[in-house]
Design a protein around this nucleic acid. Structure first.
Lengths: 129, 129
DNA sequence: CCGTATCCCTGGCGATACTG
DNA sequence: CAGTATCGCCAGGGATACGG
C-alpha cells in the first residue's frame, strides 16, 4: 500500500519532469520538423524550426537525445556532417501531439475572438447602480 | 496567392502563440485538474495542481479565461467565493492533450532507461584507437 | 477567501567569439 | 559545419505584504 502510494508519487514526479521536457516550445517544433522531413542536418533543422538560436537548438537536441527521442549521427568528415532523426519513441510522441496541433488549427479563430471579447470587457466597474 | 502566403504566415504566427500559451506547464496541469474535478474554487485548485504559487495560478487562469478555455464565476459574498470550470473549448483542448498524457504514462519507464544509458555513455573520448 | 502590488533574484536565453 | 565557451541582460516567477 505504501508501495502503491510511493509509486504514484514517483510517477507523478516523473510526469512533471516529462511535461517540462516535452511541452517545451522548441521541443514541440523540433519534433514537428523532424516528423515532416525525416533525417535532417543541424543547420537545416534551424531553418525549419525558425527563430531558434544555435544554443537553444543544441540544448534542445541534447535533451531529446538523452530522453531517447532523437538519434544523432555524426559523419566524421570535414566539414562536420551531423544528422538528426526521430526514434520510434520520438515518432510516437510526435503522433501524440498531433491532436494538439489539430486543436490549435481548428480553434485558432475562436481563440482570437475570445481574446477580443475579453479585452473589450468593461473592467468590472462594479459601482454601477 | 499573396493572400495565401500571408494567411499561412499569420496562421504560423498564431500557432506559435498558441503553443506558447497552451504548452505552458501550469496551463496543462490546470487543464488536467479541471477536467478531472469539474467546477473548482481557487484554493482547491491550487491544492490540486500542487506547487504553484498564487501569482502563477492567477496569471495562468487569467490567460486561460482570456483565451476562452475557462469561465470564472464570482459569487459576491464574504468571504469571496470564486469558481473555475472549463468551457467546451477548454474541455476539447484537454481531450487533445489526452494523447500526450497517455504517451507520458506509457513511456516514462523507457525514457528513464534512455537517460541512464545516455548518462553512462563514454564522453566520446574518440582518441581510443 | 481571492486576489493585486511590490521586491528581488535566479537562470534562461540571445549575442558573440572561438575550435575541431 | 557544428558545435562549446563566455558574457550580459532582463523577464519569469517566488516570497511577502496588503486590500476588498
Amino acid at each position: 500500500m505504501t508501495d502503491v502510494l510511493e509509486h504514484t508519487a514517483a510517477l507523478e514526479q516523473m510526469v512533471r519532469e516529462m511535461i517540462d521536457a516535452v511541452a517545451d516550445r522548441w521541443t514541440m517544433l523540433v519534433l514537428e520538423a523532424l516528423e515532416e522531413h525525416g533525417e535532417v542536418r543541424f543547420t537545416r533543422l534551424a531553418e525549419l524550426v525558425g527563430g531558434v538560436s544555435q544554443k537553444m537548438l543544441t540544448k534542445t537536441l541534447r535533451q531529446m537525445e538523452r530522453d531517447g527521442l532523437v538519434v544523432r549521427t555524426v559523419h566524421p568528415v570535414i566539414p562536420p556532417h551531423v544528422e538528426y532523426r526521430l526514434t520510434d519513441m520520438g515518432l510516437s510522441l510526435s503522433e501524440a501531439f498531433c491532436g494538439v496541433w489539430q486543436w490549435v488549427e481548428a480553434h485558432q479563430e475562436r481563440v482570437q475572438v475570445a481574446r477580443e471579447e475579453f479585452d473589450a470587457r468593461p473592467k468590472v466597474m462594479v459601482a454601477a447602480k
